[in-house]
């Protein structure tokens, strides 16, 4: 059974260089590490290199309304079988986080999907275009402000 990285090491150990900016949120299965987006790529590189969290399982975003958008990274270590959920926040107006493609090239389509459906831009992404919806589509359907049409 894979365990959370934070069960094996303490937060202080893992995030020693970034201690001030990192917060742990939630408990049990909901446990996640929230990092500021300015430090996102550096922290991800740190995790990938020093704690062999080499596998980006999932990348998605959650619309938290007033709080802004939460971009969620689920990481996994294939060799050590750790898992870790990392989050970062961006405000509603800004809706932009840096891309993690330099760390995991496979984030390409996942980021494009988030951009397409949630409207969060990834700064530095080489091809920030819609993935699933047609180019002329207006709006981002997974935002809570996007209401489904009532059934006829």
């Amino acid at each position: 059974m894979a365990i959370s990285l934070l069960e094996k090491y303490s937060v202080d150990e893992v995030f020693a260089p970034f201690q001030e900016v990192v917060q742990v949120e939630g408990e049990g299965v909901s446990q996640a590490v929230v990092v500021p987006k300015e430090k996102l790529v550096t922290i991800m590189e740190h995790l990938a290199q020093n704690f062999s969290l080499d596998y980006l399982s999932d990348l998605t975003a959650v619309d938290r309304g007033e709080k802004g958008f939460e971009v969620v990274y689920n990481l996994f270590s294939i060799s050590k079988k750790f898992e870790l959920c990392v989050k970062t926040l961006t405000s509603q107006s800004e809706a932009e986080v840096p891309t993690v493609i330099p760390v995991w090239p496979g984030a390409d389509w996942m980021e494009r999907e988030v951009y397409d459906l949630m409207g969060v831009t990834f700064a530095g992404h080489p091809n920030m275009t819609r993935l699933l919806l047609p180019e002329e589509f207006e709006g981002h359907p997974l935002r809570k402000t996007f209401k489904l049409q009532s059934r006829a």
Binding site: G26, V29, S30, A32, S57, C85
Partner: peptide, 13 residues
């Protein structure tokens, strides 16, 4: 709360 859970389906994770 929130949860991420994965299984091995025939196409992958």
């Amino acid at each position: 709360g929130e949860v991420y859970h994965h299984v091995e389906n025939p196409r992958g994770d």
